[in-house]
Design a protein around this nucleic acid. Sequence first.
DNA 1: TCGGAAACGGAAGTACGGTTCCTCTTGCTT
DNA 2: AAGCAAGAGGAACCGTACTTCCGTTTCCGA
Lengths: 190, 190
Amino acid sequence: MSTIVTEARTLRADARRNRERIVAASRELFARLGPGVQMDEIAAHAGVGIGTVYRHFPTKEALLTEMVRSRFQQFSEIASSVDDLDPREALKHVMRRSAEAVEGDAGFQLAMMGSNQLEWEGIEEQKAALSEAVTRIISRAVAAGVVREGFTAEDFGMLMCGVTATMYYKPGAADWRRYLELILDGVCVA
Amino acid sequence: MSTIVTEARTLRADARRNRERIVAASRELFARLGPGVQMDEIAAHAGVGIGTVYRHFPTKEALLTEMVRSRFQQFSEIASSVDDLDPREALKHVMRRSAEAVEGDAGFQLAMMGSNQLEWEGIEEQKAALSEAVTRIISRAVAAGVVREGFTAEDFGMLMCGVTATMYYKPGAADWRRYLELILDGVCVA
DNA sequence: TCGGAAACGGAAGTACGGTTCCTCTTGCTT
DNA sequence: AAGCAAGAGGAACCGTACTTCCGTTTCCGA
């Protein structure tokens, strides 16, 4: 807490404004173009010079990590908001909502798919929180006997990876919702 | 036919040998490292100079296309070899065998997933053949009523994309076979 | 209002990787 | 065996994209 406040306090007014612009521009372009966005583009879109971008974020990776972190946060919140639903609906709800949350964000789609192999610094906390929430949902579903034998949190990640891949690689051409429902049918026992 | 023979005839002996080495090296490195392989690496691995690689393939893309083409060929063959199986088994068999064929080839995994958006020159023929074979298998399955209502060739591509994504992005960590069986359960009606 | 620290801008620096080009070598033909 | 065209090799070239650096501008406290 104190960290954030301190940082905010020592930041000059124009600097704060620029930082917000940079973050907003990054978010939009990262979503549209993926990690391939160029730093110039972000700077231009934010209406600042490249030097200013680097004043706020030491490297491109740091900037992208910031994007991913906020998205992961959103994910954790989705996964934490279904405790009042029955086990089966909780699982379905989380998968549907998560998929919708990734839709239209190419950059995050890649981050989602590769979340196992990326060692992005600074999002461990968010990843752990998400993982914990997902595990809880699945434990409930397993205990209630509404999913197939031996279903695990790892399976969950695998399935989301697959759904995300169809969004990313078959934009428009294929309907990922069909795919997701098909998977849910395979996961949930009658 | 005449084209190939003519080319082969006009190729000097050492040139032919080198070409084969280049193709072999590319195949291996492309499989291991994906499209990110560097031309130097390929040349070094083949035991030739970079200039020699460029003598045989005008661009990196041309070389990679060659890799993908031969793999697509293999796919078509798999898809064309199940006409004697019953509709349900034909579909399952093709998906399992296809998945196995992609396993361990990172470069081709990416090509598979993105096959809709890539406009790689020179593999139209192979793609069409594959598409035709897949459509036939699915038509049979649909006619026999062994798959869910409205299953299409596009769905097939979507599912394979998902399976491939788990292989690519969760190497070792997740078991794509589980995932595939789960999908097959969702696709095939009881 | 003024001084100086903080922040800005963007041209230049740097790294990386595909491609070219030119000299030297090698296999084939006569 | 000689000549020459085809082929090999790899240093240099070029384009691209991240990052640095430093002269200029802007905010803010005294």
